[in-house]
Design a protein around this nucleic acid. Structure first.
Lengths: 212, 212
DNA sequence: AATTGACTGACAGTCAGTCAGTCAGTCCAT
DNA sequence: ATGGACTGACTGACTGACTGTCAGTCAATT
């Protein structure tokens, strides 16, 4: 094969891109390293020059997602023209959009073959999004929008609730149709967890809808 | 190898037992089918006589856990000498004891090598424990102990919260020591989610403590 | 004696990971 | 500018280990 030398960073990204695509399409265990290198157009050795094992490239893929999330969430947390409720809502909006950007990443995650990817992802997400979410909650407590003594636990509860509900919805057949009801239910739970005034989140959601 | 014929059900259980032990000790990907059959003392072919693939036996292991949980939870839900709060607390006590019975199954689950097992487990648990938990909550609403319009969502939120907090605690170093504080925090969150009187769960917990 | 079905073990095919060596690009001395 | 030394990106054949198959064996049952 013709030997083509590239900037290591570009080559690395190239390999990660293809690996991600194949893992999502066929599953981690079902994708061979040889499938990846064939698609990239490099040798087996090159793969192991960049990644010390197959598991290692999976970690690299996850890390990239986490980094994207970190950047987006930090930007929201740093805003000073919106209040805590709007931040938390923007936060969920951002997480949702990320999925969409990757062509329904979340759809892939819920296929059985991708448990491995999904599990690693959910294992690593909380430690990165709990701290900023926690800050937003503390802000809301100071603004007297929320009433909670333990912002960290509240943050965990919100994330756990959101994960659980989104998993649950994916296992049910009748996914579409009742998104509004589900949003209302999630808002209700978040308000309860945070000790916010009932209906306050929905009120803000309507306002943002109008603003468009 | 000496040929020993056993009752198929016993043989099947035998293979599952060993496989479970090895998967938990060394991880799913790191355990070879040949390791399993060597330990059981049967041939490679016997393994594939009982299970159609390596993935298949993992599903069998998970199924066994789920069945244990189902039985235990049904028994609690059927009791008529305790109220909804006591049932929910018994429910969590049962889930906790199950872990202990399996020599801290939950400890193994949180090791990185076992993401595969863990993920399959958590993917399948909710669909089995949400319905009975849901019934308990509905009971509590009728008894006017709780105030919620959507018991199913509340059940999901409680399970999600519990999972998220237990994962979070395992990733933190200072695990021991503050179990009481964590229990208090979880009770507080459950009360908020269910719309129960603040401190009510803790009150029942104290009462049960005394009863011993 | 015939039938059933649990069981065997050799084997085909596949895959993760290794390694000795190759070659493109860079940099410096002539 | 030209060559030669050097670096590190890259190659691909190879190995050992693995999953899953299958033709056939043997114990138990009828």
């Amino acid at each position: 094969m013709a030997r083509i030398v590239k900037d290591p960073e570009i080559r690395r990204t190239e390999i990660i891109d293809i690996a991600e695509e194949l893992f999502l399409k066929s599953g981690y265990n079902e994708t061979a390293v040889s499938d990846i290198v064939k698609r990239v157009g490099v040798s087996q050795g090159t793969f192991y020059y960049y990644f010390k094992s197959k598991e290692d490239i999976l970690n690299a893929i996850i890390e990239r997602y986490i980094d994207d999330i970190k950047v987006g969430v930090k930007a929201i947390a740093a805003k000073d023209d919106i209040n805590a409720i709007e931040k938390i809502m923007a936060f969920f909006g951002f997480l949702n959009n990320m999925d969409q950007g990757k062509e329904k990443l979340i759809d892939y995650f819920h296929e059985d073959q991708n448990v491995h990817l999904h599990a690693k992802f959910e294992k690593n997400v909380p430690s990165n999004i709990i701290p900023p979410l926690c800050l937003m909650i503390e802000e809301g407590v100071q603004e007297e929008l929320f009433d909670t003594k333990n912002p960290e636990m509240a943050a965990l509860s919100i994330i756990g609730t959101t994960f659980a509900i989104s998993h649950w919805m994916y296992d049910k057949e009748d996914r579409a149709g009742s998104t509004k009801k589900i949003m209302a239910a999630i808002f209700d739970l978040i308000e309860r967890i945070l000790g916010a005034e009932p209906g306050k989140f929905m009120k803000y959601a309507m306002k943002m809808e109008e603003a468009k």
